[in-house]
Structure formats: C-alpha cells, structure tokens
C-alpha cells in the first residue's frame, strides 16, 4: 500500500496553472524527493495533501484512505514557513502542536534537544532568528516520532552547520525506516538521501519513480597521471571506454558499461602509466536534472 497516492491533481491560481494532472505514488519506507525549481508547484502539491489548499480536480489517498485530520496527526509536516504564535515561547508553541496531535507534552524536551533549541525553549518565538524558527518547525515535525514526514525545503534559512545537522537528522530518520517526502529545489540535498523522486516543472510532472530508474546517470572515472595527454590517449584504447577528455588537472573517462577501477588501474600500470588519482564518480543529480528540464523546455 502506498503511503501517499495522487491521481490527477490540478490547481489553478487565476491565470497560473500551478499543477496540472499530477499523478504519482509514494511507497512506504522511501525517501521521496519532490524536485523542481521555485514556483514549480511543490508547495502547492503538499498544501493540497495537508488540506490547507483545495485541489480544483483530482484526488489523493493517505495510507490508502481519502485524506483526513486523523491521518495528519500521525504525519510530521513542515510546510513552507514555520507558523507559530509569535508571543509564545518555543516550548509553549510545541505544547499547542502536541495538543492538536492529541499527544502528551512528554516528547517536547526530546525534540527541542534534537533540534538544538532546548537552551532557548523559554524565549518567545518572535525573538528567534530565521534559523531558529526553522529549527522549531523541525522540532514540531519530529514531535511524537511520526512514521511519515513531509518536509518542504527543510534547510531554508539554516547556516551551513544547521544544514548539515538537518541532513544528519533526515539520514537517521530514513535509516530507521520512516517514509520521508522531501520537497526541495536544492538538488544536492535530495541527491544525498532520496530513493525515489518526482520532478515537477511549471506544475507538470516530468517523471517519477525510483531514482536509479528515473535518472540515467552514467558513471564516469576521474583519473590523473604525470602525463595526462598520454593517459587520455591510453584510456581511449581501453576496451569499453568511449571518451577520455582532459579536464583541468585530470582526465574524465566515460564507459559503455559500469567501469571496473581495479582493471583500469592494472591496464594503465601494464602500459607504463602510474596513476596519481583514480576515482569513480556519478554524474550529479543536478546535471541530470538540468539536462532533463532543459530538454522539456526546448
């Protein structure tokens, strides 16, 4: 059973078609990335799923049933911006979230500590910095240790160490088997954690599915030696190598099939070139994404 299943969701704001006929499924236990540039409809989509926005047409199911308030209580959601009562402290704001989720306040201390806000728990929300507000929103998401999380741009407003911390948290959650729906325009953020992906552009779903199936990412090898010219010429003679280009201080070689670095190392040594660097690399999701969205543009 899918955690979330969308069928033909459409939404229009005046002249802007924010979403048109978006359909995909989020399998349990997946880390599902919703990718797209700003304004592609990611937040609108998640707003519809959480019932703060109404779709013009289409339907969705959470846990196999039409979405309702009870299901939302068992999902941790961060949508767009942190929304809290400015005059209340972080702690008291979480008491309200806990109350609406029909949970006791006993988990508040834990989530504030996880998000690094425990020391400022009694300060009013309005005194928080942007990053701290975002941390409080994350704390609210983690409240009650939900099995499904919806995170819309979770690293917004965080400093580099905050971003790293949040990624760490997402990693840990993913490893513990939780389903995470992660919307982001930061591709490296998604690349590091996602198992599945849906790519949106101007409200259209370009494609969706498991990351490995959806995005063809040819692996390539980055190598260098004392004489890169000779190395490049040698690599072109290597069986299955279809290109070897000098790029900066190294040679980028691509192959018809999955490259075997040990064999490459042996081949070079046997031909009298000693490698100073040999690294298997994947084409970044960003590059794949840009190629994809660029193709659909033209």
């Amino acid at each position: 059973m899918s955690i979330l299943s969308l069928q033909g969701i459409s939404k229009r704001y005046g002249a802007v078609q924010a979403l048109s006929g978006v359909t995909f499924d989020v399998p349990p236990g997946s880390v599902f990335g919703i990718l797209g540039p700003n304004g592609s409809g990611k937040t609108t989509l998640l707003g519809i799923v959480t019932d703060v926005l109404k779709a013009d047409s289409g339907s969705f199911q959470l846990f196999g049933k039409p979405g309702n308030a009870m299901q939302r209580r068992s999902i941790g959601t961060l949508l767009e911006t942190p929304n809290f009562y400015h005059y209340l402290s972080g702690w008291k704001n979480l008491e309200i979230s806990a109350s609406i989720k029909r949970r006791g306040a006993d988990d508040i201390e834990r989530v504030l500590k996880v998000c690094g806000l425990y020391a400022r728990r009694d300060a009013a929300f309005k005194t928080y910095s942007l990053g701290m507000k975002q941390r409080l929103a994350l704390a609210a998401v983690l409240l009650g240790d939900p099995d499904v999380l919806i995170l819309d741009e979770p690293t917004n407003g965080l400093d580099p160490s905050g971003i790293a911390e949040v990624r760490g948290i997402i990693h840990d959650l993913a490893r513990s088997g939780k389903t995470i729906i992660l919307a982001s325009h930061l591709l490296d953020e998604v690349e590091k954690v996602c198992t599945h992906v849906a790519i949106l552009q101007r409200g259209q779903l370009l494609l969706s599915g498991a990351v490995t199936e959806v995005i063809q990412r040819n692996d390539f090898v980055e190598l260098s030696a004392a004489d890169n010219q000779a190395l490049s010429a040698l690599m072109l003679r290597y069986p299955g190598c279809n290109s070897a280009v000098i790029s900066g201080s190294s040679v980028i070689a691509t192959f018809d099939s999955y490259p075997d670095t040990a064999a490459i190392n042996g081949w070079c040594a046997n031909n009298g070139i000693w490698l100073s660097q040999l690294q298997l690399r994947k084409k970044s999701l960003e590059k794949a994404f840009l190629e994809l969205t660029h193709t659909s543009n033209s």
Partner: peptide, 15 residues
C-alpha cells in the same frame, strides 16, 4: 497573521 490557521490544520485539526 501568524498563519497558525494553516498550522492547526496541518497538525491535525479538521477545518
């Protein structure tokens, strides 16, 4: 003003 009308729904109140 605080957009908590959204948050209350997101957190699990029915409208």
């Amino acid at each position: 003003t605080f957009r908590t009308n959204r948050q209350n729904i997101i957190d699990g109140w029915d409208r």
